[in-house]
């Protein structure tokens, strides 16, 4: 017989090590970006347009572009994703069609982001003649984050105890009233988790916006959803690989802003989620 205390200790050590292995890279990324990026941050950097071939000035248009794109993507993906999740978890029966839909969602989640970019180019930019525009980019990003939102919303809906539905129906509520007033309010924290994940993904991806919206250099703000826009991830790519002699401060500053923006949006969603969770406990 092995000594159970010793195996226990070894197991504990391995588990801790694995956890640290996750934390360390995240910590390093954050530290490096803050260390190298923070000196480049100034009011001018945040509020000015890029100047001197993007080697000076600020990144304001890219910040605005990313905020527009992320907002647009959520506006498209959240309602559609939530409604699809409600259908799948509350209404659909387990049959061939349902299995096909679920398989499609899983596959959609596995599609490389550059394929979304090409799809967006073909469908929205060319076929629907939206051109390279915020609308086309938002739609493309929206489709990309749909599976994340559907999957997490479905899980959230399914985790609402069955007894709540049973009681509601037994009180004479219709199925829709039950979903609307009992199931959905209790699923909102989970839905928001999915939205947070989708939001972060939409803000950070470069490939889907490459052909559908992103402008190489656009020293003014978009006037409508049919305009092109700069976006932070693409701008970062451009100044890191396409434009020679860009100061490290600007590159890491841009990365810092992108990171901060995503964290800020997450924070807002987390606070909303927390408020909901505080109210609903079972």
């Amino acid at each position: 017989m092995r000594n159970p205390h010793r195996t226990q200790k070894i197991a504990f050590f391995l588990l801790l090590l694995a956890t640290l292995l996750i934390v360390v890279p995240v910590g390093l990324i954050v530290v490096i970006i803050i260390q190298k990026g923070l000196p480049g941050i100034s009011w001018q950097f945040l509020s000015d347009i890029p100047r001197q071939g993007m080697r000076a000035g600020g990144i304001f248009p890219a910040i605005v572009g990313t905020v527009y794109l992320v907002t647009g993507a959520i506006v498209f993906a959240l309602p559609i994703g939530l409604l699809a999740a409600i259908y799948l978890s509350e209404y659909s029966k387990d049959n061939f069609l349902t299995r096909l839909i679920k398989l499609a969602i899983v596959n959609l989640a596995g599609v490389p982001s550059v394929v979304y970019g090409l799809f967006g180019l073909a469908l929205f930019v060319v076929f629907f003649k939206l051109g390279a525009s915020i609308l086309a980019g938002s739609l493309t990003l929206g489709i990309m984050i749909l599976p994340i939102i559907i999957t997490s919303s479905r899980e959230a809906l399914e985790s609402v105890p069955y007894t709540f539905r049973e009681v509601s129906l037994s009180l004479g509520a219709s199925k829709w009233q039950t979903i609307r007033h009992i199931v959905l309010p209790n699923a909102i924290p989970g839905v928001l988790t999915g939205t947070i994940l989708g939001l972060g993904r939409a803000a950070g991806e470069t490939a889907p916006i490459l052909f559908t919206v992103a402008a190489f250099y656009l020293p003014f703000l978009p006037k409508s959803v049919f305009d092109q826009a700069m976006a932070l991830p693409y701008h970062l790519y451009v100044i890191s690989t396409q434009v020679p002699n860009v100061d490290e401060k600007i590159r890491y500053g841009t990365a810092f802003v992108l990171l901060a923006l995503v964290l800020f949006m997450n924070l807002v969603a987390i606070i909303i989620r927390y408020q909901f969770r505080k109210k609903k406990k079972w």
Binding site: T163, F164, E166, V167, S168, L169, S170, L171, G172, A173, S174, H181, I182, N186, K279, K280, K281, W282
Partner: peptide, 27 residues
């Protein structure tokens, strides 16, 4: 809906909704 309005049910486990006392009753 009418049937269940007329014939109500109390379950084995007490199962109030995760709402206030007031909201539970007015549901």
């Amino acid at each position: 809906v009418t049937l269940r309005e007329k014939v109500g049910m109390v379950f084995q486990r007490p199962n109030p909704f995760p709402l206030s006392i007031y909201e539970n009753i007015v549901f």
